[in-house]
Amino acid sequence: MISLFLKQLGILLSSLIALTVFTFCLTLLFPDDSIPVLQSPIESTNLVEQYLYYLNQLFNGNWGSSQLRGSEVLRDFLLYFPATAELATISLLFAISVGVPLGILAAENKNKWQDKLVVSTTLIGYSMPIFWWGMLLVLLFSVTLGFTPVASRLGFEYDILPVTGFMLIDTLLSDQEYAVEAFYDALYHLILPAIVLGTIPLAIFTRVTRSAMIDVLSSDYIRSARAKGLTHTRLVWLHALRNAMLPIVTVIGLQISVLITGTLITETIFSWPGLGKWLLEAVYRRDFATIHGGILSVAIIILVINVLVELLSYYLNPKLRFSV
């Protein structure tokens, strides 16, 4: 276990080095003086020394300032990150909590009408253009029916002091008398964006769960468990799902980077003040310091999450867990 942990750590470190080499090369392509703090003050230094200086500055938290607003990039990142993290977490929860049971349902009824319905709808969900889908939902549920809010994270009648940046937490921390009401409002504002962002991962989770469960359900131990008289629920949820989890967890891990890139579009549709909007605006306005910081931070997040997921799948896989 420990050696596996160390191995993952090694992978993480080497990917980080590769990443910083890449972003360092980017800064060389940027116009001069776009991120002065990352450029070595001594002119005669060679590329390696410049790179080391660059790394040193990054480690010390000097990521430069936005050319547009003059604010520090790292601080901006911390300002925008919670909104994206909150949205991505809720969509992930949504996609798992709907996708996995749907996949199980389809596997239990393999080749029956339930299965066919699930398979065909997930195919549609998987190939849905997010932008169009989001617009459609907003038009139907928000504009026409008035069920859900159109955009942003909270209704403006609530004045909530940002503490953590996570709206669901901040509303509960607030000492305003409408704190609980604001919490529900924040939850309501999350519904549509989470559904839109979660649609593609949901389709993928369903399909992966379905095929994994079909494999497991046809295996010998399930058959003997069934012969022993175990109830169907126990059989499926306890014995089969546990072994089907492994491919599902791997796919969930892979989908997290899809989620993060999906926020770029979803945040634009819902005017959601997260990383996606931050980065797009920076690209649009040629704010190189922000572009650099944005790429670096998003890539680091994805790398770290991927390593965590790898470790989790080791934990779930007894073959690997007990092999060392």
Binding site: V138, L139, S142, V143, G146, P149, V150, A151, S152, G155, F156, T268, I269, F270, S271, P273
Partner: peptide, 19 residues
Amino acid sequence: VFAITPDPSLRFARLVAGE
């Protein structure tokens, strides 16, 4: 409150919805 909404169609949708 200024609700920052760069997309004109989204602004209109929010107006219609009363936001």
